[in-house]
Write a protein that binds this DNA or RNA. Structure first.
Lengths: 167, 167
DNA sequence: AACATGTTTCAATAAAACCTGAAAGTTTCG
DNA sequence: CGAAACTTTCAGGTTTTATTGAAACATGTT
């Protein structure tokens, strides 16, 4: 397989995967581009490679900075801004986990805590509701702890434990 | 907090969460409804509760059946079909993990395996590309194994191991 | 067969998400 | 200051995705 073809395909696939991780397609594609680039890229270069507009490039780069998985790089003597991606897959995953925890798990936990205060009026509906919410809360809290551990863990420690688990 | 209010809020929140799990909003809301219902519901009842059309209800119920997290129930003497959700949070999570693995992780693994065959022409670009792909592949494979274990695991065994991990 | 009861499909429509490009804004430097 | 170099914003246009509702389809029942 040729390089340009492989590159094309990876960017495409990354676009889809990123999408299911809560990024959007373009965001994920910019990220893929930066992942495989040997050097930081400017907005200009990104626009060109992906054939997207300046506004689009700008907005999605900002979103990536927001997620904390891309950073600005200044090159001495140049006024343009350049961008590079965190390349270590492990830190990348940790960062994504951190964001998703903040954006998704925490809000639902908040709601679950709120609605678990529903007044018990003795009807079956309420009883069932309380039961379901309790279970969900329990699960969500366990997941939250697990995620937190993941986020804080060292790579080697984590995988070693997991490998033990898998055996 | 009153029941109807709590119910409303939970359905709303579940809609959002479900969305970030790869379901769509309505699908997730139907699911929430079935989770807290004390009895199986008919299409009619679902339409009413969520104020959605028949077509919409039908399509999303089908999608939930497809994901394997909702099942049909027939009530003797009734012609209508009723639906109920798997209520055990743990099996639910397992089922979602199973589907997402199939729908997301496997496709990207396939691509990663393909593009890792990129011919090494000695340029820096190719070198970097091969390195990145190798790392990603490694990570994706580890995740795949972990997911598989999760999917196959017994609840108690899994959480016990995790609790040990967390300590 | 005609009817009643329920389910599925799908073309049209509506809503949401996304992208563009030009204009406005900012920073740097002579 | 004023111009050049670069970045950000945002109204309007495009694409994608979700929803409706009515017609077609099934499956009994009389």
């Amino acid at each position: 397989m040729k390089y340009t073809e492989a590159k094309e395909e990876l960017i495409q696939a990354w676009g889809n995967l990123g999408y299911s991780w809560g990024l959007n397609k373009t965001m994920a594609q910019i990220h893929a581009l930066l992942m495989i680039s040997t050097k930081p890229l400017s907005t200009e270069e990104i626009m060109q490679e992906l054939a997207i507009s300046r506004g689009n490039a700008n907005m999605n780069i900002r979103a990536l900075l927001d997620w904390g998985i891309v950073s600005r790089v200044s090159i001495p003597g140049e006024r343009k801004e350049y961008f590079k991606s965190e390349k270590d897959t492990w830190s990348l995953a940790r960062q994504v986990a951190r964001e998703r925890r903040k954006r998704e798990l925490e809000p639902i936990l908040k709601i679950l805590r709120e609605v678990s205060e529903v007044s018990n009026d003795g009807t079956d509906e309420t009883k069932e509701f309380r039961k379901v919410v309790k279970d969900l809360k329990n699960f969500a809290e366990k997941s939250d702890n697990l995620l937190e551990t993941f986020i804080k863990a060292e790579e080697s420690w984590f995988w070693n434990s997991i490998i033990k688990l898998l055996k």
